[in-house]
């Protein structure tokens, strides 16, 4: 019994160790080239400035502000979130990864990377957007929670879909096509919550935020099970 306990403890320790090892490797590789991060940031910055420039300082309603914010975040994510897996296929390191690491550790490492990546994007883009659009959230706590929960839902869905696209040949438009139906309801709820937090007198209910986090949990669970089937190529 003690031996079994020790074995399972060692097993979970090695899983955590593998996850952090993969996460560190991805961070180092992505930081070295910074391609996807640069593209996402450039896209977000250009879109924000373009919207602000064209509107000429005319104030938007809170709903329009929320829609524009999430459009910018979403398409920035589309540029960057699939890269974590397509890079492995392009550089020919996916077989090495398969042999070297536990599949669960591979997926969880990439998932954590994507969540952190999107979180960093949001931290940089959102204040920039609020500055240019001259929007001030009426309830900042709710606004931050809405943006973060939406971001977690988007990044957790796109991790597995990115793995599929990488195995399918890594075409960028394919990733957008297959992820859009899954992310559309997430976007819808995130926009509604963000708009509610931007305007004064909006609802303070957290049910939708809980839904987004529950959605993320469900997606991560099913992705973890299905990842073996996708990444274990013939």
């Amino acid at each position: 019994m003690t031996k079994m306990k020790l074995r399972s403890a060692a097993g979970s320790c090695s899983l955590v160790h593998d996850i952090f090892r993969n996460l560190k490797k991805d961070c180092v590789v992505e930081f070295r080239s910074r391609v996807s991060f640069a593209i996402s940031m450039a896209f977000a910055g250009i879109s924000t400035i373009a919207v602000s420039l064209v509107s000429g300082g005319v104030p938007f309603s809170s709903l329009v502000q929320a829609i524009l914010l999430w459009l910018i975040l979403f398409f920035s994510a589309m540029n960057g979130l699939a890269h974590i897996f397509t890079r492995e296929e392009e550089e020919g390191t996916s077989l090495f990864l398969l042999l070297n690491s536990n599949l669960d550790a591979v997926f969880l490492g990439k998932l954590i990377f994507n969540i952190v990546f999107f979180f960093v994007l949001q931290v940089l883009i959102t204040p920039l957007y609020l500055f240019f659009i001259q929007a001030v959230p009426a309830r900042p706590g709710h606004f931050i929670a809405a943006v973060i929960s939406g971001g977690v839902a988007i990044s957790s869905s796109t991790t597995f879909l990115g793995a599929m696209v990488a195995k399918a040949g890594g075409r960028g438009s394919l990733f957008t096509i297959i992820s859009f139906p899954v992310l559309l309801p997430v976007l819808w709820i995130s926009i509604a919550e963000t708009a509610g937090s931007l305007q004064s007198g909006g609802s303070t209910a957290v049910g939708n935020l809980v839904f987004l986090l529950a959605f993320s949990g469900l997606v991560v669970a099913i992705s973890l099970i299905l990842f073996r089937a996708v990444w274990n190529s013939q």
Binding site: L161, M164, L174, I178, V219, V230, Q234
Partner: peptide, 23 residues
């Protein structure tokens, strides 16, 4: 679209099945 994009891919059946289960 995914299934037709994977036309020549040997993992076509697995990937499209995984997508169907996910959704």
């Amino acid at each position: 679209v995914l299934r037709s994009a994977l036309a020549d891919n040997p993992d076509r059946r697995k990937i499209s099945s995984a997508y169907m289960i996910f959704t």
